[in-house]
């Protein structure tokens, strides 16, 4: 009975205040979309980092079947060449710069590739043979990349030496800046959302002051009086958060998955499904926004 009563109160409150409720939905929608966009950029950065990014700085790729580099004129790297390179890495001249290194076989490379590009059509057309084996080196000082590069570039069986970080870091700094911008916009929008929710609750409390006055007089508990107002804000915010999550999903599905991954097949993109892990966070944030701002407002404008 009490639950049914509270639900009926909520429904009547939402109906009476429809335009305000719609504006709360829109503002939370926009602000949470920005929050979610920042989250999505971070997810994308993680996706592009792949398996090795956080573990090593320098990769020495060995010659494989399709290699066209000058050092690979003799065809794919032989096991002896590979052994020599391993020995060279362990030699004191090089070892002083190296924390440790790992060898990634073609099969390992294929496994990691499949993980990173799981959302991309390219994964089906690649076989382990096409991927180069590599040494992945964790440097004591990443700045000393040049020394490794000079030492190994000219070795037999080495296709290329790459400082992965340098390649990706520029892109990542752009993406990080973009997510910072998104978070700042979101911050301003969230302030708007909080104020708007507060105003909506205030209007709602004002338009129902007769009811709440009578409820107080006949001894309704604080919860029964306040809950409909709080839930009104929460419901509006959850709808906004739901719309924001749906928008992010649509962006990931149609823009990243449908358009960008066709344009840049060699880049790993996040899948639409991955954006859904942001949804609970966005909805939680929406509930928190609405709950906190309505609690603060009610304390001032709804005497119990």
């Amino acid at each position: 009975m009490r639950l049914q009563f509270v639900l009926a109160e909520i429904a009547s409150g939402l109906r009476r205040n429809l335009s305000m409720v719609v504006s709360v939905i829109l503002v939370t929608f926009v602000s949470l979309t920005f929050v979610g966009a920042a989250g999505m950029l971070q997810l994308q950065i993680n996706q592009m980092k792949g398996y090795w990014y956080d573990k090593v700085q320098v990769a020495i790729f060995l010659c494989s079947d399709g290699s066209t580099a000058a050092g690979c004129a003799t065809g794919p790297a032989t096991p002896e060449q590979q052994e020599n390179l391993g020995k060279l890495l362990e030699s004191p001249a090089v070892a002083q710069y190296v924390n440790d290194f790992q060898f990634e076989s073609k099969d390992d490379a294929y496994k990691h590739f499949k993980e990173q590009f799981s959302n991309s059509p390219i994964v089906d057309s690649v076989t382990p043979d096409q991927l180069p084996a590599s040494f992945r080196i964790n440097m004591k000082d990443p700045e000393k990349y040049q020394i490794i590069s000079e030492t190994f570039s000219s070795q037999a069986g080495v296709e290329t030496v790459i400082d992965q970080r340098q390649l990706l870091e520029r892109l990542f700094s752009v993406m990080n800046a973009a997510s910072l911008v998104a978070v700042s916009v979101a911050g301003v929008m969230i302030v708007c959302a909080i104020l708007l929710i507060a105003t909506t609750i205030r209007l709602s409390a004002f338009s129902r002051r007769r009811e709440t006055g009578i409820m107080r007089l006949v001894g309704a508990s604080k919860m029964v009086i306040q809950l409909p107002f709080i839930l009104e804000g929460v419901i509006a915010a959850v709808i906004g958060a739901g719309l924001a999550s749906a928008t992010l999903w649509a962006v990931a599905h149609f823009f990243l998955g449908g358009y960008l991954s066709q344009q840049y097949p060699d880049t790993a993109f996040i899948s639409a499904g991955q954006t859904l892990i942001l949804a609970p966070a966005l909805i939680g944030l929406g509930v928190l926004l609405a709950g906190v701002s309505s609690l603060l407002t009610l304390r001032r404008y709804l005497k119990v």
């Binding site: 009975m1 009563f5 007769r210 009811e211 006055g213 009578i214 007089l217 006949v218 001894g219 029964v224």
Partner: peptide
């Protein structure tokens, strides 16, 4: 119980609903 000069009834509710309201809000 409290009664006022200006009645303080809920205009959209019927007589029955106005009286029932006092019971609903305390969970009868």
């Amino acid at each position: 119980g409290v009664v006022f000069q200006d009645f303080r009834l809920l205009p959209q509710k019927t007589v029955f609903a106005n009286v029932a309201f006092a019971m609903q809000v305390i969970g009868k």
